[in-house]
């Protein structure tokens, strides 16, 4: 039975368990993305303010999140906060918080970049047509930044999906962990199972990220 590692996949509830693991991965990353995008847009607009205090605050926040490895942030949120403040956050809540903090910072920087790339005369000509600030943002600036932001946002989303594999280390059982459990349980009977299981996980990640990329492509075309 040396050569039929694929069998492991169909034994018991193994495949279903993998899918459940994938769901954990997607749940954390998608919740985080959905919260990060609007917060990131606001943070990006905040970063374009000329005020020196708001600049310093946003700079510090962005650099802190960038420099800290996500794993360290996860540990701080899960172990550190619990110890220090006696708040008992579940692993999933801590993971979502960390990914939202990370996503907001990254998204904010993308939005900031997109906003300052809109030439000043676009603002001027909108103003000259009698638009107020809100109308200028809504009808002129935001549609133009959207197009620039889509590929970057998708990139961030897929990065988040992939980075969620770190939550294993704060005790969550996501798709990669499930795979490892299945492989470990069958190590002696089916030594080739590892390749099959990891192969399937690879496919699952692909299936999770690919539709998002396709959607991005479609939107980019439509908003050209």
């Amino acid at each position: 039975m040396q050569d039929s590692g694929i069998k492991v996949l169909f034994m018991g509830k193994n495949f279903l368990r993998l899918l459940e693991g994938l769901w954990v991965t997607l749940r954390i990353s998608l919740i985080a993305v959905i919260i990060s995008i609007p917060l990131g847009i606001l943070f990006g607009m905040f970063m374009t303010l000329k005020n020196p205090i708001s600049r310093a605050v946003s700079r510090v926040y962005l650099e802190f999140i960038r420099i800290m490895p996500q794993l360290v942030l996860l540990f701080i949120a899960y172990f550190g906060v619990t110890r220090t403040f006696g708040l008992n956050l579940s692993a999933e809540v801590s993971a979502v918080i960390v990914f939202v903090l990370w996503g907001t910072a990254e998204m904010g920087d993308l939005v900031r970049g997109a906003l300052i790339s809109i030439p000043k005369h676009q603002y001027d000509s909108a103003a000259a047509l009698g638009m107020n600030r809100i109308q200028t943002f809504w009808y002129v600036v935001i549609p133009q930044t959207m197009r620039r932001l889509i590929p970057l946002t998708i990139n961030l989303t897929t990065r988040m999906i992939k980075t969620t594999s770190l939550v294993v280390l704060i005790g969550m059982t996501e798709v990669l962990k499930v795979g490892k459990q299945i492989i470990d349980a069958n190590r002696f009977e089916y030594p080739t199972a590892a390749l099959w299981i990891y192969g399937v996980i690879f496919l699952l990640y692909f299936l999770a990220c690919w539709p998002i990329s396709m959607l991005a492509k479609k939107l980019e075309k439509r908003w050209r």
């Binding site: 030439p119 005369h121 676009q122 001027d124 000509s125 000259a128 047509l129 009698g130 638009m131 109308q135 009808y139 002129v140 549609p143 133009q144 197009r147 908003w223 050209r224």
Partner: peptide, 28 residues
């Protein structure tokens, strides 16, 4: 007061007719 600038400042994401009608529809 209509104003026209040196740089061609049309909105690149909108076609010509939408460029022209944006402000009349949304502002006026």
């Amino acid at each position: 007061i209509g104003m026209v600038f040196q740089s061609y400042d049309l909105f690149p994401n909108k076609n010509i007719i939408d460029n022209i009608t944006l402000a009349p529809v949304k502002v006026q």
